[in-house]
Design a binder for these strands. Structure first.
Length: 546
DNA sequence: CACCAACAACGG
DNA sequence: TGCGCCGTTGTTGGTG
């Protein structure tokens, strides 16, 4: 992970789903050393032994290489890095595709980024505009990369972020290629148990039909339970004026329709979002393959496109099962954001309260520190105080507890409050490595908007730095697994949680590597810090066991 | 018919 | 005083 300044050879590579694989050797700065040549994918693995940094257009380039069997170690991803650089220049969201970046260098008008599409994997169709010749694309990659090298040269943290973001692209494509093991039979059985047998066509499952009838009976007239407006009107007629039909609002109403309605909503959600249609669309050959969008969220968290991979409900996690003879290793970082805040602030007291053991509970430690070891509801109050600091909540008792937190841990609270002031006053903020927030927009100086922006920038510095930690964790874990002879493969990542999948006899080794990678990530970002991020990893047969 | 905003629920 | 951050997906109910 750590960048040995200037040590790695650089090789530009370009590939598309069809057509040749092109490479060009570069010097330290990214200037071409030789001609463009067409090579076999197998030659790339050979070249990779020289530990180069591959320079490519975007994660899809690596997808095309993976499809040809080339597994490469590290990269500089020109389009991901361009996104970081335009934001750092105060132009968050400006076009950062290869065409736009090349146009900027040439002093030409920026081309808008192409819309994300799914046609890339398909052969060019009748209505698809012809792609530029591969050699031309590679030349643009080389040119833009050289400019990016210069832009990163004076900023070692941003250079580290560029490397980490690029590594994220690699991990994302490898996880997609590997796929999350998904047992369709278990999923189907679970749906049948909850909803009744799979109905033909678009019919409503029988359990939903039965509940809808109960709801009708309770209100004395037919009612579409899927329509919030109708539900609201029905309760109003029964004498209950409520602001919306959220679960926690309905729960407080004393009316016979509430129980069947809540049951209906829960099952209808399961059916609509993760029912048989989802299963048929997204699970093939025992694998769910979401498309991860690295850096897809303002804070640098990943997004996904298709299948809702970052919202797999607990209710269907039993379907995520290791193959026979294999195990899943499930690990999540404990209370990541407050620990990241402590590290950013150099807050030894908060670090100590967070503990160092694998089962350390930061909120419990904090409660002992803030309210004494035996205080009633101490943990809940401490948690509320921390969330108030990180999210900007001030309602209820949050403000009181936050004030106490400020007295005990002034360094940490100052980090977020300073970010909140920056946001409220219209300034941009940056994460630890320099991911840059969007600038204020016209109208943000209005008081309510300014406070909302303060909450956003307050959260941004912590969430974005936590996302950086997670990126480095992934990169480190990937290479540690590789060094250990691949006892398991990364198959899923969700903000602060990873899933590995591999032979049962390697699961214990894989689990060990997770905590080691977490420690490396912490040191890589923050150097010698008293903060530790526990990341307990557990070998299981099913995701539901965690 | 295509498009869009509001709502609601899931995840972190 | 009033204030919880970041997302994706599907349905309803309206618009042009």
């Amino acid at each position: 992970m750590a960048e040995r300044a200037g040590a790695a050879p650089r090789i530009a590579v370009h590939a598309e789903p069809e057509g040749p694989v092109l490479v060009q050797h570069l010097d330290e700065l990214g200037v071409p050393l030789g001609p463009v040549s067409a090579v076999e994918a197998s030659a790339l693995s050979e070249l990779d032994r020289r530990a180069p940094r591959w320079v490519w257009r975007n994660p899809r380039t690596y997808r095309a290489l993976l499809a040809r069997g080339a597994r490469l170690t590290r990269a500089h991803d020109v389009e991901l890095v361009e996104g970081l650089l335009v934001a750092a220049a105060g132009r968050f969201g400006a076009p950062h595709g290869l065409a736009a970046a090349a146009a900027r260098l040439a002093g030409l008008p920026e081309e808008p980024d192409p819309a994300p599409d799914d046609s890339w994997d398909e052969p060019p169709g009748l209505f698809r505009s012809a792609a530029p010749p591969a050699a031309e694309t590679l030349a643009a990659v080389v040119e833009v990369h050289a400019a990016q090298r210069k832009a990163l040269a004076g900023d070692s943290r941003l250079a580290m972020l560029a490397a980490a973001e690029s590594a994220g692209g690699i991990v994302a494509e490898e996880m997609r290629a590997e796929g999350l093991p998904w047992d369709a039979a278990v999923h189907d059985a679970l749906l049948t148990e909850a909803l009744g047998p799979r109905p033909a066509g678009f019919a409503r499952p029988e359990k939903l039909t039965a509940l809808a009838a109960e709801i009708d009976a309770a209100f004395g007239r037919p009612l579409n339970p899927d329509s919030p407006a109708e539900v609201l009107r029905a309760f109003a007629r029964a004498g209950f004026e409520v602001p919306n039909t959220r679960n926690w609002v309905l729960k407080r109403i004393d009316h016979p329709g509430v129980a069947p309605l809540l049951a209906y909503k829960e099952l209808a959600r399961l059916h609509a979002a993760h029912g048989w249609a989802w299963l048929r669309t997204w699970v093939h050959d025992g694998r769910f393959r979401p498309e991860y969008v690295v850096g897809g969220v303002v804070s640098g968290r990943w997004a996904t496109r298709g299948g809702g991979a970052l919202q797999i409900p607990k209710a269907v996690r039993a379907a995520v099962r290791a193959d026979p003879g294999n195990k899943l290793v499930v690990a999540d970082a404990a209370q990541l954001e407050p620990r990241i805040l402590a590290a950013m602030a150099g807050d030894t007291a908060l670090a100590r309260a967070g503990g160092r053991g694998r089962d350390s509970d930061l909120y419990a430690g904090l409660a002992a520190e803030m309210f004494g070891p035996d205080a009633e509801d101490g943990r809940a109050k401490a948690k509320l105080a921390v969330l108030s600091a990180i999210y900007g909540q001030t309602s209820g008792d949050a403000g009181v507890h936050l004030a106490l937190l400020r007295r005990r841990f002034p360094a940490s609270v100052e980090v977020v409050e300073s970010a909140a002031r920056d946001g409220e006053e219209g300034r941009i903020v940056r994460s630890w490595l320099g991911r840059t927030s969007p600038p204020a927009r016209p109208g943000d100086e209005a008081p309510a908007r300014a406070r909302a922006r303060g909450r956003f920038t307050r959260n941004f510095v912590v969430q974005a730095t936590a996302a950086e930690w997670a990126l480095i964790l992934l990169a480190e874990l990937r290479s540690a697994l590789h060094r250990a002879g691949d006892p398991a493969a990364l198959v899923f990542f969700q903000h602060d949680e990873v899933l590995l999948h591999g032979p049962a006899d390697g699961a214990a080794d894989a689990a060990e590597l997770v905590q080691a990678a977490a420690d490396t990530a912490t040191r890589t970002l923050f150097g010698d810090t008293p903060v530790r991020v526990p990341m307990p990893a557990e070998p299981v047969d099913s995701y539901a066991e965690k």
